[in-house]
Simulated assay, not measured.
Amino acid sequence: MGKRMRDDEEDAGEVALRKAGMKLPSNIKNKHKRSAEYAKVRAEKIKEKKQRIKARDTAERQAVELGETPPPRQVPKTIENTREADETVAQPDDEELQVDDGVDEFSGHFARAQMPKLLITTSQECSSPTRKFIKELLTVIPNATFYKRGSYDLKQIVKFAKNRDFTTMFVVNENRKQPNGLLMIALPEGPTAHFKLSSIKLSKKIKGHGKPTSHMPELLLNNFTTRLGHRVGRLFASVFPQDPQFRGRRAVTFHNQRDFIFFRHHRYIFEEKEIKELAPVTIGVNSDKKSRKAAPKTVKKNAVVARLQECGPRFTLKLQSLQSGTFDSKYGEYEWVHKPDMDTSRRRFFL
């Protein structure tokens, strides 16, 4: 993204030089002279940008002093707000989606008919980093139990979990002694989601990390906008109890951005803090310049602010497939599978 913005700036600089009838830096054959010319063009663009920002801030300040509405700022273009249109984006008043939610595999959980109960296991070969990661998952997710995989087949473990009333099953896979995949199986009827697991950072590696309590955490699901994203979000929600204990001030977040799901675990606290804000304009428009200068620009005010302390772990998930029913790699019916040709556009998202 940053490289593309720099390229756009350089293209704009070349257009300006061409209009002015000057020689383009790209046409200079000597490398050192070409680099020096590029540096000059870039320095001029930075200078112009600073002047525009200064002029904008001055105009906003003058508008506030005169009691007028400041001119609106331009909204920068990002990959998110220029994403390709998607017909599967779920609307709040979608009656069909509400009916589907009432009869899907997670309807019992959201009706509080059963308490979530999680079984966590691994691939047949389990290394120390994977065990450390699972140990931290057990502190985050309530009612979670770890079972060693041994030589058992995955279908046998699914049957074992069903017989003991587990509602969800996690299988942490690894490659080269590092966890790299997560299989989530909703029991007893599915679905099964396979995620690529990356960017794992345990609590000890997080600076200033906190120690979580045993209270039931709050769950935050952000930006799961499509039908597929809505289904994946309900799968995550089915792992956590529906009645969080707010006294513990714990929050677990699944944040979707560009189809990467970022997991975070925090503790929070609300406290009063003295902040500064713009002072209300009390001087008339016709008052002299000296009076306007003497008027206070900011005032101190007590406000309630939130402070966060990350507890860990943190990791990133990328959906690879969503399968109907429980795990069946041979005869399973897939609802969605990620394929390489889906990545042809940077502005196309599925969750």
Rank of each mutant, 00 (worst) to 15 (best):
M1R: 06
K3N: 04
K3C: 03
R6E: 10
E14T: 07
V15T: 13
L24C: 05
K29H: 02
K29T: 04
R34H: 00
A36W: 01
A43W: 06
E48S: 09
K49S: 14
I53K: 15
A55I: 08
R56H: 12
D57G: 08
R61K: 13
P70A: 00
P72D: 01
Q74I: 08
Q74E: 11
P76D: 03
I79P: 00
A85V: 05
V89F: 00
V89T: 05
A90T: 13
D93P: 01
D93Q: 11
E96Y: 14
L97G: 06
D101C: 04
V103D: 02
M115K: 04
T122C: 06
S128L: 06
P129T: 02
I134L: 01
I134R: 02
V140S: 11
A144L: 08
T145D: 12
G150W: 14
Q156H: 13
F160Y: 12
A161C: 06
R164Q: 02
N173G: 15
R176L: 09
Q178W: 12
N180D: 12
L183T: 07
L183F: 04
I185W: 00
A186R: 00
A193H: 07
L197N: 00
G208D: 09
T213H: 12
M216R: 12
P217T: 12
P217W: 13
L219E: 03
T226P: 12
R227G: 11
G229E: 04
F254D: 00
H255N: 14
F260R: 13
F263I: 00
R267N: 10
Y268W: 06
I275V: 10
K276W: 13
A279S: 11
V281Q: 08
S291D: 14
K293V: 11
A295G: 11
C311D: 10
P313V: 14
T316M: 08
L317I: 01
Q320F: 09
F327I: 01
D328C: 04
K330I: 14
H338S: 14
P340W: 08
R346Q: 01
